[in-house]
Design a protein around this nucleic acid. Structure first.
Lengths: 154, 154
DNA sequence: CCTATCTCAGGATGACTGAGATAC
DNA sequence: CGTATCTCAGTCGTCCTGAGATAG
């Protein structure tokens, strides 16, 4: 950031601009919170998805977490290194690894969700509860619409 | 994307998540539009900033465009390669390059702004005019607030 | 001396492409 | 056969750190 100077007026009402800047601020806060406990965004996403839907193959987990299949390998390695997940071969389909959350992973997730919540609060600080609801509702509309266009059955 | 499966319910109301996903969709649309004419996001940002504020040093231009100083060099090289900007030494401060828009750069900018506008429209498609205003107003509040916290006098 | 500008090298994250081996 | 899974290697855009040379 460091906007010592004014920014072009034509950007003030450009959604892609506002969205990218707002997301960048959110990302900074999120990364800061997670880094304070040595985690990355992908970790929180995978752990939460496992907690919510239970064990699944890497590919399925990646789709549910909106993480690219080719990025899942490294993410799984990092999480397995710390015994936060377990990777066991699927006997009914030998291509697959079934990923499951370990007790340590569940505990880790609780910690990460605290940090996540702190980031949300810091990000939304200037908005009233009513405005926060409005914003999340509008963003949800946007995301759902575009997910539907580029994605599968949702 | 490709969300063949459901996504964790706990994300549905997480601003950092919604923002990052909405921004990603916007970014995809933006990059797609710009790539169709061989341009990148930084090009449009620098060209628009030059058009709005006139010639400036690289550092000043970077601050106004919210582009990191160390990323400006490559961006300037790319734009200068196509004669879209001119880099002339500042006689009153020999550290500085004064960057100015060439006629070709102005023309280029007009083309890019058409593509930009198309991306905005595609992104906001599911929202009514009133909702679009609400969204941009809320995002502006968010961005202004956090710009003020991390930046200068903006 | 300290600060600012420009340049270069490189890292981190997130999203993505392509290709290969294996299994269904 | 085609398709899906997992793995590996690498690109790209954006944001960011650090360091050096030069100039104010």
């Amino acid at each position: 950031m460091d906007p010592t100077e004014e920014r072009p007026a034509r950007w003030k009402n450009k959604p892609t601009w506002l969205l990218s800047q707002a997301a960048a601020h959110g990302h900074r806060l999120l990364v800061g919170e997670l880094a304070s406990v040595g985690a990355r965004g992908y970790h929180a996403r995978v752990l939460a998805t496992l907690d919510e839907f239970g064990p699944a193959s890497q590919a399925e987990l990646g789709r549910r977490s909106s993480i690219h299949l080719s990025d899942m390998v490294a993410t799984m390695n990092e999480l397995a290194e710390h015994q936060l997940i377990e990777r066991t071969p699927d006997p009914s389909d030998r291509r697959r690894n079934v990923i499951s959350l370990t007790p340590a992973g569940e505990e880790r997730l609780r910690l990460l969700e605290e940090r996540l919540a702190a980031a949300q609060e810091a990000l939304m600080a200037p908005l009233s509860p009513r405005e926060r609801e409005q914003l999340t509702a509008l963003l949800s509309r946007l995301v759902d619409y575009h997910d539907g266009r580029s994605g599968g059955t949702g």
